[in-house]
Simulated assay, not measured.
Amino acid sequence: MEFTYGLMIAIGLVTYFAWQKPELHRKLMLNPYNTVYKRQVYRLFTSGFVHNSSIHLFLNLFTLYFFGGAMEKIFAVHFGVLGYAYFLLLFLTAIIVSNIPTTIKYRNQPHYNSLGASGGVSALVLAFILFDPIQELCLYIFICLPGYILGAIFIGYSIFMGKRGKDNINHDAHLYGALYGLLFILILKPSTLESFIKMVF
């Protein structure tokens, strides 16, 4: 889990130092207006390394710990040494890709901001489900369901809440991060879809 630990440490440290310097925090988060019109495209990436609260940070690191470690092992089994590079590529590019729809959607709203590693984390969760769909996953400890059911609920919920848009959570980043995770695996290893179908049905 060396790479998972490395990501966790990097996210934790960047978030902590950004909390000490509010101006840095503002510069690192995703602001679609500045990203598009001031060409600050780096925000698509750096926003994945800052969080707005300790709870927000904990939830993302907690999920990254479990699914990052699992995906490191899965990638190593299927792709050998290259698996670790694919693992990092999936997580880091998912942060960028998951932020693109939000950037397009809110590009004309100068005061809209978004931040957090949720896009990358969501990609890892759905990638894991694609490899092991019948593994039971627990939501809030008490609700445990097979991964493929929980994954479908997660995607449906993200679509619904993204359209509703009445809270401060970037559900679009969750949705597109999850979909990107599925697409990444299917391009890298198309046979995963066949094994997924066999395990589920």
Rank of each mutant, 00 (worst) to 15 (best):
A10F: 14
G68T: 00
H171P: 06
G80I: 09
T63Q: 01
A18G: 02
G83E: 14
M161T: 03
G147K: 01
L130T: 00
L82V: 06
K27V: 00
L145V: 08
I11F: 04
V97G: 00
L179N: 04
I159N: 00
I100E: 05
H25L: 10
V36H: 05
S54G: 06
N52M: 04
I159E: 05
E72Y: 06
N113Q: 09
G69Q: 03
K166Q: 05
M71S: 04
F45T: 08
H174Y: 14
Q109V: 14
T35N: 13
N108P: 03
L139F: 15
T46V: 12
A178C: 02
L183I: 10
L57Q: 12
Q20F: 08
Y33S: 12
A18W: 01
L186R: 05
V97Y: 01
R26N: 10
A70R: 02
L179R: 05
F75H: 12
I155V: 14
L188A: 14
Y176E: 08
Y140L: 15
V121S: 06
H171A: 12
L139V: 15
L13M: 14
N99T: 14
P133Q: 04
H174G: 02
F154E: 01
I100A: 09
A152N: 12
V121M: 06
G156V: 13
L186V: 14
I185N: 00
F62Q: 09
G12D: 09
G80L: 10
I159D: 05
F79S: 09
Y176V: 11
L64E: 01
Y140T: 09
P146Y: 02
H111C: 02
I11G: 03
S114Y: 07
D132C: 09
A94L: 06
I134Q: 10
Q20T: 12
L64D: 05
I149W: 11
K166H: 06
L126R: 02
V14K: 05
L44S: 09
L115Y: 07
L61H: 01
D172T: 14
L82M: 14
L82W: 14
V36K: 11
Y140K: 04
L193K: 07
G119A: 15
F3H: 10
L145A: 11
G165L: 05
F75A: 13
S122C: 10
P101V: 11
V50C: 07
T4P: 03
L44G: 07
G162V: 12
R164I: 02
M161K: 13
T4C: 06
G165C: 10
Y86D: 07
R39W: 09
A70D: 02
L44K: 11
A152W: 09
H171F: 15
L124F: 10
S54R: 13
P146H: 06
L115A: 13
Y5M: 03
Y16W: 15
Q109W: 06
L145C: 04
F131S: 08
Y157K: 06
Y84Q: 15
Y157F: 13
V200A: 03
N60K: 05
L24D: 02
H171M: 10
I9Q: 08
Y140V: 11
Y5F: 12
T63W: 00
R39Y: 08
L150N: 03
L145D: 04
F184P: 02
I149A: 12
P101N: 11
H56D: 10
